[in-house]
């Protein structure tokens, strides 16, 4: 079983002195509650689990990590490796201080119903079945699943009238309780001082008196990761109010793909990010947004 192989390999590496600790998952209070953990000894490694509830993307936990010596071992699912790569590109993770073991993934379970067997939305549209970065692969790697197009939801919204779209988002975003879980879990959201923590602005961390603040928070949150979002889907996974945040991120991805050419964040470290780049001749004017489409109602 893959979990045993992972534990065994981690122990070997720890004994050989190549790594000083390992980042993985351990069981929480419930069987469905597999949470990220750092393992520092052989004994602790016995508690490592890997199952379909291990949804957390471990890349973010490596941000700003400053090991005095040795390496940290991290287990990455294929989609997590994109986030990892993106963070390496942004110089937030030192590639040489991390030892990556790539592990296969069958998709993670939605936890909304405790006994659920339904996969997370991100897993239903997943096409990232191969690791983009690893030192070694452990266990069985899985073949490409049959996946829906990830832009279906965005397309559906785009075809609605402006008024209906507003209604949809009003309903979604007014549920927001500003717990900031989406921001904190996001591997791309990693400013040391977040604009929403600035208490000179009245955008600070607080429950909103109006839906406007929710709209503003979510527009800016999605905007700040535009061009860097690998579509890992963590934001939607952790939202306690089940807001479909991936629809915002994917809108930016879709726009970037159509306006500036296909781009997958985290795929290629040397590629220039779409918003830190430009093409003087072929970039369209912002006016194209105002042309066409339906009139606003």
């Amino acid at each position: 079983m893959i979990q045993d192989l992972m534990i065994e390999r981690a122990k070997q590496l720890l004994l050989s002195g190549e790594i000083t600790c390992a980042a993985g998952w351990k069981r929480g209070d419930f069987i469905t509650d597999s949470q990220p953990a750092i393992f520092e000894s052989l004994q602790e490694l016995e508690n490592l689990v890997y199952d379909k509830y291990c949804a957390a993307n471990l890349s973010k936990y490596l941000v700003g990590l400053n090991l005095k010596e040795g390496k940290i071992l991290v287990f990455l699912k294929p989609c997590d490796s994109y986030s990892f790569n993106q963070l390496v590109k942004e110089n937030l993770i030192k590639r040489e201080s991390v030892y990556i073991i790539g592990i296969g993934c069958e998709g993670n379970i939605r936890l909304e119903e405790m006994q659920g067997t339904e996969l997370l939305e991100r897993c239903l549209v997943c096409t990232k079945t191969e690791h983009v970065v690893y030192d070694e692969l452990v266990g069985e790697q899985l073949n490409a699943r049959e996946a829906r197009s990830r832009f279906e939801g965005v397309l559906e919204l785009e075809q609605m009238s402006s008024g209906n779209r507003y209604g949809f988002w009003h309903e979604q975003l007014s549920r927001c309780i500003r717990c900031n879980a989406c921001r904190n879990v996001c591997p791309s959201c990693n400013c040391r001082k977040c604009v929403f923590d600035n208490n000179k602005y009245d955008t600070g961390q607080k429950a909103s008196v109006s839906t406007f603040e929710d709209q503003m928070f979510h527009i800016i949150r999605a905007y700040h990761v535009a061009g860097r979002c690998t579509d890992c889907g963590e934001c939607s996974r952790v939202c306690p109010q089940l807001i479909e945040l991936h629809l915002l991120n994917r809108k930016f991805i879709k726009d970037i793909n159509t306006l500036y050419g296909p781009y997958q964040a985290g795929e290629d470290i040397s590629a220039q990010g779409p918003l830190t780049d430009f093409n003087a001749k072929t970039d369209p004017e912002p006016g194209i947004i105002h042309q066409g489409g339906q009139a606003d109602v």
Binding site: S162, R165, D255, F278, P284, E285, P286
Partner: peptide, 27 residues
């Protein structure tokens, strides 16, 4: 302004996506 052009295009598009009147913004 080349960087601005890309950013603003995406921003206008996002406002439209949220159902906010796009005619309120212009470049």
């Amino acid at each position: 302004n080349y960087y601005a052009r890309r950013r603003i295009t995406l921003f206008f598009s996002m406002l439209d996506y949220l159902g906010i009147e796009k005619q309120r913004t212009h470049l």
